[in-house]
């Protein structure tokens, strides 16, 4: 069926969003059409402002509204422990666990010999500067267990260790709910190498 032009336009834009198929786009569009003008104004403003008002934290390169993000500004966080992650979504995942009380450094990607991503395309230099500034005692590398994640962690540990800082890596083990049977050799080898006493 043909939609009225404004509705068709909205559906077309919504379909471009990740994970939104034509059916979902149609459902969302009808929802927006039924919503009050005030509600839609708030949605439209939020969409416009997210781009205009979000920048990178000058210290950790997480998304931030101000020069420093709320985590870097928080006096209760331990500024001497930096957890290095590839992107803000990984930061959110660690933050949601509630286990970590230090601060972060967002690399904005991972090194990739295969795709040709080099250190100068990431926030590597800025991390090294932070560590050189002297207040950092430990750097925790929290990269995905992929070839790119491994390459990045190995590269950073080679750059950071000579600076006299303690460099650790997140323990990699078996996923919760996963099966020992189905785990690959890399996962099992690491789970064994990094085992701990209980």
């Amino acid at each position: 069926m043909r939609y009225a032009r404004p509705l068709a336009q909205l559906i077309e834009q919504l379909e471009k969003l990740p994970g939104i198929g034509p059916k979902s786009a149609q459902r969302l569009a009808f929802h927006i059409l039924r919503a009050s003008q005030e509600e839609n104004q708030r949605l439209a403003t939020a969409i416009l402002e997210v781009k205009a008002k979000t920048r990178y934290c000058q210290r950790c390169f997480n998304f931030s509204e101000e020069d420093l993000c709320p985590i870097c500004q928080d006096a209760r966080r331990d500024q001497s422990v930096i957890c290095v992650v590839a992107d803000p979504r990984d930061l959110t995942a660690i933050e949601n666990s509630g286990e970590f009380r230090g601060v972060y450094h967002v690399l904005q990607g991972l090194l990739s010999p295969i795709e040709g991503v080099l250190p100068d395309q990431l926030r590597v230099r800025e991390l090294i500067e932070r560590v050189k500034s002297g207040t950092v005692k430990e750097v925790i590398l929290a990269m995905n267990p992929t070839v790119e994640g491994d390459a990045t962690a190995l590269f950073l540990s080679g750059e950071l260790k000579p600076l006299g800082v303690k460099v650790t890596q997140l323990a990699m083990g078996l996923p919760v709910g996963g099966d020992l049977d189905y785990a690959d050799q890399v996962t099992i080898a690491r789970a064994v190498a990094w085992r701990r006493e209980i």
């Binding site: 070839v147 491994d150 390459a151 190995l154 050799q185 890399v186 080898a189």
Partner: peptide, 16 residues
């Protein structure tokens, strides 16, 4: 998986 080549994941020059 038949072989993961674990040793290649543990050394940056071997990865490269």
């Amino acid at each position: 998986i038949e072989e993961s080549f674990y040793a290649l994941h543990e050394d940056l020059s071997k990865i490269a």
